[in-house]
């Protein structure tokens, strides 16, 4: 795979190599993101060449990119004479070879790949450990996002994030945190916001709304962890989807509200005429009424009994209607 990474065309270099070594098939990509996307789709390459001869390069990003790519295949960096020293500084030891793009011969290119391959094997133990980490990273059920702390740009995500939010790996790499969660920023920005509001920067667990690719809004509990990849500080965000928990909580609240309503109805509506009946019968029994009031009390007893009957019928009807609806 040949990563052009600049506006300077690499055709001269690839033709030159093809002229000297037959059977090499170059797959050209425009930038690091496109290369990462091909790798994440399962494409395998015998070697990766990356062109770092552009004057507009951001060296911190390049260091990170080279670290990631050198784990995938023998990596050869092509650069200009002017940038050679600078590029050498950012190369991980033994994981990448470096050639001057204009003057590199097919033989030098071949040797660089062989040399890188050999040195890479010496680092197999280290790579195995990193591979285990990568496997753990991808198989971890919690969503993990690696982001640029300044810009909030996604640098890497695990499979759980892809499965649960529905975006492809390439989608993620083209987005920033705020594209998925309007109020969520990189930690550096968050810390600045917190400090400006005199809030505690230590409390970095937040519940945020995230937009999944299908448009669904999910409630995610997000924890920020400081992390470093290849010497570059990044934000690691662990996110758990708690939408169903919140939904269940709301259902329980609604149920409790219904129970409260039932308790209120039973206490104030159903029990009122029952209590009146009991009190009327009680004064009747205790002989507290005069002969003239006797008829009035009996009428009230009957009215209270009718009221109970009406309420019970009403409850039965309401319950039947609720079941049918």
């Amino acid at each position: 795979m040949m990563i052009q990474n600049s506006f300077i065309n690499c055709d001269y270099f690839t033709e030159n190599i093809n002229a000297g070594i037959s059977g090499i098939q170059f797959v050209l990509t425009e930038d690091f993101e496109e290369a990462q996307s091909l790798i994440s789709e399962g494409r395998e390459f015998d070697a990766i060449a990356i062109d770092l001869s552009d004057d507009q390069m951001k060296w911190n990003d390049i260091k990170f990119q080279i670290n990631i790519l050198s784990e995938q295949a023998p990596l050869v960096v092509l650069t200009s004479e002017r940038h050679y020293c600078k590029v050498s500084e950012v190369l991980p030891s033994g994981a990448a070879g470096c050639l001057i793009k204009k003057t590199a011969t097919p033989g030098e290119f071949h040797n660089a790949i062989l040399c890188t391959e050999k040195l890479s094997r010496l680092q197999a133990a280290k790579c195995a450990s990193e591979l285990r980490f990568k496997q753990l990273f991808n198989s971890y059920p919690t969503m993990i996002f690696i982001c640029d702390p300044e810009t909030g740009k996604f640098l890497d995500v695990n499979e759980s994030a892809i499965d649960q939010l529905g975006y492809s790996y390439k989608d993620f790499l083209s987005k920033k945190l705020r594209d998925l969660s309007s109020s969520l920023r990189g930690k550096a920005l968050l810390l600045r916001e917190w400090r400006s509001r005199d809030e505690n920067p230590e409390s970095i667990t937040q519940i945020k709304k995230f937009k999944a690719k299908n448009g669904e809004i999910l409630d995610l509990q997000v924890v920020f962890l400081p992390f470093s990849i290849g010497g570059k500080d990044v934000d690691m965000l662990l996110a758990t989807n708690i939408s169903s928990k919140i939904k269940q909580g709301r259902i329980i609240e609604m149920q409790n509200e219904r129970f409260d309503n039932i308790a209120w109805t039973q206490s104030h509506i159903v029990r009122a005429p029952v209590a009146r009946l009991m009190a009327l019968i009680n004064i009747f029994k205790n002989g507290l009424i005069e002969e003239a009031e006797r008829e009035l009390i009996l009428d009230n007893i009957y009215a209270a009994a009718e009221e109970v009957d009406e309420i019970v019928r009403g409850i039965a009807l309401a319950s039947q209607n609720a079941r049918e609806n």
Partner: peptide, 9 residues
């Protein structure tokens, strides 16, 4: 003085 038997009341 209420017909309520609800503990909340």
């Amino acid at each position: 003085v209420s017909s309520s038997v609800n503990e909340k009341d």
